[in-house]
Structures are given as C-alpha cells and as structure tokens.
Amino acid sequence: MELLVWLENTGFGIWMREADYLYSLFPYTFVLAMHTVGLALLVGPKVAIDLRILGVAPSLPLAPMEPFFRLMWTGFWLNAVTGVILIPGFAIIRLTDPVFYIKLAIIALAIVNLRSTYREVFRGGSDSRQPSARAKVQAVTSLGLWTAAIVTGRLLGYEYSPFVRWAALRVFVITAIAIAVIGAGGFMAARSLGWSKAVRQRG
C-alpha cells in the first residue's frame, strides 16, 4: 500500500492525473485514447479472423491473412505500453481493484489463445480453407475472451460502484447469450434453407 501511495505521488503520477484539468490535450486523455485505438487494432482484426475460421466469408483464403497478426501485435504493444503509463496516476484504486486483475488474466489467456491460433492455422503456410475443429474451438474461445476483456476494461471505469458493475454485467451476460443463441439459430436455419453463400459455393 505504501508503494501505491508512493506511485501516485511521484511527479509522473501527479502529472498524469492532474494535467488534464489544466486543459491540456496531454497526457491522461491522450494515452487513454491511444489505449482505445490499440484495442481496435488488436481486437477488430482478431475477431475478423475468428469469424473467418468459423465460416464467415468462405471464399477468403486464410493463409495470406498472416501479415495482419503484425497489426494485432502493434495494437497489443501499444496497449501494453499505454496501459502501464495509465497506472501511476490512479495506482491505489486500480491496483487494489479485483476487476483490474481479472482483466489482466483474461488478456493473458487471450494472448495465449492468439498464439495457439497462429500455430494451428497459419504456421506452415498451407492454404487451409477448411480450418480444423480445434481452430474453431480456439476461435470461439477467442471471441469470448476478447469480449470479456472489453467488458472488464469498461467496468474499470466504475471503481466506486460495484452495484452498477454487477447490474451491467448481469444484463450484458443475458444479452450476449440471447445474441449468441439467436445468431447461431439464424445461421443454422440459413444453412439448412440454403441461404448462405457457403452452402451455395459448396454446391
């Protein structure tokens, strides 16, 4: 705890916390905004590749998508760096917040998952238009983990109201399950009725 108090009261911590009230573009809001840009660069392309693995855009070959992993790693490192910079200004509230550690754990798992997807689908350079069942399981896991990362990240902003956090989480889980069930049902219905492109292309 003394360490956290010290961290908040270092020159850097004070500057990060208070410079915004001096109507400056820097630094807290700027770093926070870059953290959001990094999120988009990492999560967007990963979700796109997961969706492709799960059967969206079947005519899109997976192997040439490999360079987009560089984009994801750029997003990841941007967020690792901005994330560390964001801590000192609010060290006490963040580093004593269980949600913060849950978020870090989720991201660690998501990165392990990203690396195993890379090994499973992209290593070897074969044009694997039909991803393995294992790759599909990894893709579903990835979608769940990145969603959870965004949810916990956003809930970090409600550090003083656990009640709001639980309420938001509860409604989100119900909504997410509803969307998943309706989405999967719709997909299967479309497939059995022959509406989807995938079915038409396979003849």
């Binding site: 988009a40 967007g44 987009f68 965004i150």
Partner: peptide, 17 residues
C-alpha cells in the same frame, strides 16, 4: 459503453484491415 466499445473494435479494426 460496453456495446459502444465492441462496436468500435469491429468497425475500426475491420476497416483498418
């Protein structure tokens, strides 16, 4: 906010690709 961020990740991420 959660849905706003999910939306932004989908939109910006895929457009950037």
């Amino acid at each position: 906010e959660i849905f706003h961020f999910i939306g932004l990740a989908l939109l910006v991420g895929i457009v950037v690709m």
